[in-house]
């Protein structure tokens, strides 16, 4: 007890997450030749760029004590929506992206308003939002649409080169969004209000915090993040696909929890989410490197890690309370 009081309660989960990441990466590097390299490390970020971007928005929602199950479907919708605009209607990519972002933010704002004004459970409303977005995506087109616009090739081919280290555009997008998310979460009034609402909504209300705008705002921001993730994913694959991001919301939630953010809201750190993406990527890369392990081990390992983290959180909370 004396020891943990010297480390602030905000840092402890972060440290635990960082240790687990280091242990996982170290184990993988020990068993698989060539794993311990800058290329693999960068690929942890670039392979999971759009998942990571979605996880940034999810982190903010979970800060506020809510949850958003619609992100995977919004990614799929944005992907097919922008692809159709660009390829079938000759809309400029910039404008198509704006429209896609606006659609994602609009859906988020609508869900946030229902959740706030009518006090409806977030998971139910965002579940309905998921059905709406997925249905709308398939309504536009059931097949994937390839994008031939030259700007797409240019952006996805862009990379930063530091000597032998190559950082692709994907990883840069992810880092930029992470940085923005970190700023919003920890250095704005909005971010602090979210944590306060997640900690205790009644107290936040009594303190005079604008909980309505904060709650509606966070679902809007998350819709925006999901739409952005959809655009990045479309850049990455070069085609719009309405079934993109199927089940991605679960991975995003898992990443946030592995990052040490409390699912009940009120406590967490954006840096943890970055570590969560790295842990997720390490498991994925290790399974890929092994070659003998089938893809379903991914789900099992993520589930097991989720269990470990949640039990750690319980232990942590219980010790604090006693």
């Amino acid at each position: 007890m004396t020891k943990s009081s010297s480390i602030s309660s905000r840092q402890l989960p972060l440290i635990v997450t960082a240790v687990i990441f280091a242990a996982l990466f170290g184990t993988a590097a020990h068993f698989y030749e060539g794993f311990f390299s800058a290329r693999v490390f960068i690929s942890l970020l670039s392979e999971n760029a759009f998942l990571g971007i979605a996880a940034v928005g999810m982190t903010l929602v979970i800060f506020s004590g809510g949850i958003d199950l619609s992100v995977g479907a919004v990614i799929g919708f944005t992907s097919i929506f922008t692809a159709t605009l660009i390829e079938r209607h000759q809309v400029a990519p910039g404008l198509a992206w704006m429209l896609g972002l606006a659609a994602g933010a609009g859906l988020g704002a609508g869900m946030g308003a229902l959740i706030h004004f009518f006090r409806l459970p977030p998971f139910l409303i965002t579940l309905a939002g998921m059905f709406l977005a997925r249905g709308a995506g398939f309504w536009i087109s059931t097949d994937s649409i390839g994008i031939g616009h030259e700007l797409y090739g240019k952006i996805s081919g862009y990379e930063w080169v530091f000597g032998t280290v190559v950082v692709p555009a994907n990883a840069l997008f992810l880092l930029a969004v992470m940085l923005a998310g970190w700023g919003v979460a920890h250095h704005t009034r909005f971010g602090r209000t979210l944590l306060a609402v997640g900690g205790n909504e009644q107290s936040a209300l009594l303190m005079g915090l604008p909980i309505g705008p904060a709650k509606i705002g966070v679902y809007t921001v998350n819709g925006l993040c999901a739409a952005l993730a959809g655009i990045v994913a479309t850049l990455y694959t070069g085609s719009g696909n309405p079934s993109m991001g199927l089940g991605l919301e679960l991975d995003a939630i898992a990443i946030v929890v592995m990052g040490g953010t409390l699912l009940s809201g009120g406590r967490g750190h954006m840096l943890g989410t970055l570590l969560g993406v790295l842990i997720f990527g390490t498991i994925q890369a290790a399974i890929l490197f092994d070659g003998r392990l089938s893809s379903w081990w991914m789900r099992i390992v993520v589930g097991a890690l989720l269990l470990v983290f949640i039990l750690l959180q319980r232990l942590f909370l219980r010790r604090k309370r006693s």
Partner: peptide, 21 residues
């Protein structure tokens, strides 16, 4: 005392992997 959404999410994620296994 884990919240129900979280507790059952674990099996939701891992369960399909177990079924495939």
């Amino acid at each position: 005392g884990v919240q129900p959404i979280v507790a059952t999410l674990i099996l939701m994620v891992a369960g399909r992997g177990v079924a495939q296994l």
